[in-house]
Design a protein around this nucleic acid. Structure first.
Lengths: 256, 256
DNA sequence: ATGTCTTTGTGAACGCGTGCACAAAGATGA
DNA sequence: TCATCTTTGTGCACGCGTTCACAAAGACAT
């Protein structure tokens, strides 16, 4: 998962653990698939396999929602779809604005999964006056001057930021001031928001770096298998290449 | 954060906790900013604020890497940048392939943060023959027939999947068979991979649903403030709207 | 009606991650 | 050289999340 949790100060919402909430969409997706194939009931074991989790975990997750299963049989697919949808708040309509219609913003606007489950793109907003009026995914881009009015008129409470990093905090502030209380941030920056506002961030670069770490570790262990010494030595695979970053990435500067 | 962790079977790599690894890129970004402004040293308190974390957590994270600070002074910025980069494996070059050049794939190819830190887009691959040869972000798209050869020739170990959900598992299998051992998955599917292959997923839809949950909770609590009764009742804000899904989303079916 | 068999729901144990609070370390100044 | 002051590094406790293992519950057959 490429998501970064941000400050949740031990506020277990209505008794449902945050970790469970994060898995509910996963279950919902698996259940929707079963529903489309007209499967009437499903056991915790089967559903867990489809969602890629442990069956005990799944049962415990569902137990936070209530006793929706039938012992000896399993769970009623349609009923569970409805219960999870309701718990996640997907039975109501969520107007969403996307700010920053570059490559990524356009991709998000075109993303089918957006509209499919209660989320409706209320507006696309960009700071470039030249973009105003241009249709993207069938919706005309509006200039950021209109931001406050759009939020207010449409009762938008969820905003997506896909601007460059430099503009993100400013856009965030305006969204919050206009009434947005949930933000999905794609810009590589730490956003600071007042209490009561939720921020989730999606950061491609961080995900890649985490993968690189594990990749390097695999290569290091492999090399350690050949070598006799402890794996504490630097991995001796490939050329270190001595990266020359833009800001003078010198080999190493011993401190003091 | 919009990332989904996937199966890490308690394999704390080289003693560095997974949670710490996930934060290292955050620190690195903050440090790079300081480095560009030629700040020589930084205290754990300052750096923690810049990265949006607790200072004690930051110090503990760094303690897993070694004792790189100087008591009474703080951390040498350049030195720390180098150490974290090395630990994350960013001092070497990582060729990456992106499979599925739709809106999202194109956005990823154009994403600057990609190339900036050791990651190099080795190839863009798409299944549509009509796309072959089309330049995206300055790189000609290649047909998926070439996938195995590209992976092999360039020594690619990291693959990004931005195909539709239906094609993801198949692409994943081919990538793994060709030698890829780390996958960043943008398709809304659970990928199954053999042991030794790392998968991280980025799922926009899941992030939005988590936000919707908290948003609904806020609205519910607010309503409970006005109302006298317990907050266990359904939130009475806005119209439930009775979503009519594509697959017959009837109000509710009581089980048995 | 009774017994068997399947599957849920959960009590309990364990491990990881977080944050407090403080001792150790070193810089700085007299 | 010695005292003071700042900041690191970490021992410890606590809470959340995960997993095991099993009793309770219900379906189904006889």
């Amino acid at each position: 998962m490429a998501t970064g949790r941000t400050h949740r100060p031990a506020t277990r919402s209505r008794g449902i653990p945050e970790a469970t909430v994060a898995r509910l969409p996963l279950y919902l997706r698996a259940l929707t698939g079963l529903s489309e194939r007209s499967v009437p009931t499903v056991s915790s074991e089967e559903l867990a396999a489809a969602a890629g989790v442990n069956s005990a975990k799944l049962r415990k997750d569902f137990s936070y929602l209530g006793s929706y299963g039938t012992r000896g049989v399993g769970y009623d697919v349609e009923y569970l779809v409805y219960q999870i949808s309701r718990e996640l708040g997907l039975t109501q309509d969520w107007p969403v604005v996307i700010v920053g219609i570059g490559n990524l913003g356009a991709a998000l606007a075109n993303y089918g999964g957006f509209a499919s489950r209660g989320f409706r793109v209320a507006a696309l907003i960009d700071a470039d006056p030249a973009m105003a009026g241009t249709p993207v995914a069938g919706i005309a881009v509006q200039h950021s001057d209109e931001l406050e009015k759009i939020i207010s008129d449409n009762g938008v409470s969820i905003g997506v930021i896909s601007t460059p990093a430099g503009a993100a905090q400013q856009v965030c502030d305006r969204l919050v001031a206009a009434g947005v209380t949930s933000i999905l941030n794609f810009a590589p920056t730490v956003l600071s928001v007042p209490d009561g506002v939720d921020v989730r961030k999606v950061d491609l670069s961080i995900e890649l770096q985490i993968l690189a770490f594990h990749e390097q570790r695999k290569a290091g262990e492999e090399a350690a298998g050949n070598n006799a010494e402890q794996a504490d030595a630097p991995p001796l695979r490939a050329t270190p290449a001595s990266r020359k970053g833009p800001d003078g990435d010198v080999p190493a500067v011993m401190p003091a």
